[in-house]
Amino acid sequence: MKMKIVKTGMSGTMESSDINIVIEKGHEAGIKIHLQSSVEKQFGAQIKSVILETLGEMKVNDVVVRAVDRGALDCTIRARVQSAVMRAVKKENDMDWGIL
C-alpha cells in the first residue's frame, strides 16, 4: 500500500507522559523531525529513532514531523506516530492493520 500524505495528521496530547505528533507533507525529500521534549537531554536521540523507525515500518517518506514530548514511553510514541500517519493519509477509518 502506498502511504500518500494528503493532509496534516495529528495525534496525541500535551499531557504528561504523552507525545503530540503532527505529520505534514515535506517539501524536500526525506524525513525531517522537529522535537521538543521535557527529557530531551536524556532521551532526545531515542525519541527521534523511535519516530524514524515507526515511519520506516509504515513506509512513510518525505514528511515533516513536529513532536512535542512530555516524557512518553517508546510504546506511546510509536502509537502516536502510527495514528498521526493514518490520519495524514486519510485512512483512520479504514485501517490496514497489517502494516501496523
Binding site: 527529557v39 537531554k41 536524556q42 532521551f43 531515542q46 514511553l73 517508546d74
Partner: peptide, 10 residues
Amino acid sequence: DIVGKPKTIQ
C-alpha cells in the same frame, strides 16, 4: 526496562 537507558548528562 520501562523507560530505557537515559543518556548520561554532559
